[in-house]
Design a binder for these strands. Structure first.
Lengths: 248, 248
DNA sequence: GTCGCGGCATAACCTAGGTTAAATTAGTCG
DNA sequence: CGACTAATTTAACCTAGGTTATGCCGCGAC
């Protein structure tokens, strides 16, 4: 695939983000950059990249676009169990288990880098900090999954939606994808409903309510949060679980 | 702490279980066994072993008893986000992140082995299969967490409770803790409610319903599943996500 | 242009599950 | 054994959120 300047800067972004998780040696950064640039792939919106039951033999690192992990029940009920944002990897280490337990779909057009298992393992085995950075990502993912459990199990509709907006905003911020108090929101209300365990109708009602109270503006696929602290209060949102900042 | 014959057999059980995840070398088994026997600790029921916000510097491996991971909201709402059963480890690798994002509490008296971070890391660095076995555990945990998301977000009360019973049964089976079609159920309905995102009253109603249809008997802290396949159907339960059996 | 379709919005109605309260039973500590 | 307390059960009532339906808007295909 042909490389553009913007692809290169996206790769920089991934590396900068991993570097925040664990400081990477310059060799690690260089070899990862090389591997990423070599495996660039583009995909359209609403494509399944991998489905529940599929075996895995590569790692995908997202450079741009939004994806989601989801599971479905036999009768069609669908639950989005997590989003995947630029800079994050799809299935680091998933190849350690025989098959996928969930599916991954694109929600927008995406650019990602695909690294074959053998290549990925030789990268991480030759540099401990790189291995740890990817593992940290997996651990944070696990923490996000737990937060979603309490979101789905114990928060009201309003709190859930507010919480999701806070989380999206805070996860997009460190990869430079928020602009002031706004960020893109390139997904349908159907998707938001599937992520919050609500029906589309009630999701819509809830968004109306958040608009009416002036907490957010959601228009033209853009989310604007007028008062982030107030939204966090409404959501009972506490960002610790995202582990965005190392203490040291 | 003094060792009993039964402690030794519990340690065997942990090692057998990890060995199913990844075949372990005999040296790995021996050194792990030694580390486990050295760190035995007992705790009573309803004790917090570690709380949200605490730093972590050891790994606990459960030999007997039930624990749960939970999160709470400021106003007291509580969500149990997962159970921890004998043979499983509490927080393998959690020390890679600065602090805990959730709390872990005992639900019954427990026996566990505590391995300090440095010891754990030297164990896993000297044997790749051991490291992979523990990582697989973390990955399966992640998969369970996703299944809980769809459980909380998209299943009805009856399906949720039935699903939880199926999961508990299937997770206890490989560690020899089911007897025919029965297993212990040493937790209160309050706990089951917090795990399924229901109120205690409705949890009770739902259990009554499962009893009335003859699917289960729940009495004297013992769960008996009369027809496991029927219960799985009622729950839309599919055990893939537990990755209990390696394909090979 | 207009046909068709996907996404958003709103209304009317309904039900699964929450809440409150009180009775019953089981367990624990003297 | 009796006194407390924690856990279960049941009942009455209520509300958050689901369901069904309908209209509207914007957009791509032709």
């Amino acid at each position: 695939m042909s490389l553009s300047t913007s692809d290169r800067s996206l790769v920089e972004l991934v590396i900068r983000r991993l570097n925040v998780m664990r400081p990477l040696s310059s060799e690690a950064r260089a070899s990862l950059e090389y591997a990423l640039l070599e495996g660039l792939v583009r995909a359209g919106a609403s494509e399944d990249l991998i489905s529940e039951g599929d075996p895995v033999d590569s790692v995908r690192v997202v450079l741009s676009g939004w994806l989601c992990r989801y599971k479905t029940l036999e009768d069609g009920r669908r639950q989005i169990v997590n989003f995947i944002f630029p800079g994050e990897s799809c299935d680091a280490h998933a190849f350690l288990l025989p098959v996928m337990d969930h599916s991954i779909a694109t929600m927008t057009p995406v650019v990602y880098a695909e690294i074959k298992r053998a290549r990925f393992e030789s990268l991480t085995m030759s540099d401990r900090s790189l291995a740890e950075a990817f593992w940290c990502e997996t651990l944070v993912n696990n923490a996000i999954q737990r937060e979603w459990a309490i979101n789905l199990g114990r928060r009201t509709a309003l709190e859930r939606v507010a919480h999701l907006f806070c989380e999206i905003f805070e996860r997009l911020r460190p990869v430079g994808m928020v602009d002031g108090n706004s960020c893109v929101m390139p997904v349908t209300q159907m998707d938001l409903a599937d992520a919050t365990g609500l029906s589309v109708v009630h999701l819509n009602r809830t968004v109306q309510e958040l608009r009416a109270t002036g907490l957010i503006v959601l228009r033209d696929r853009t989310l604007t949060i007028n008062d982030l602290d107030a939204l966090k209060d409404a959501a009972l949102f506490s960002p610790n679980y995202l582990q965005l900042y190392r203490p040291d």
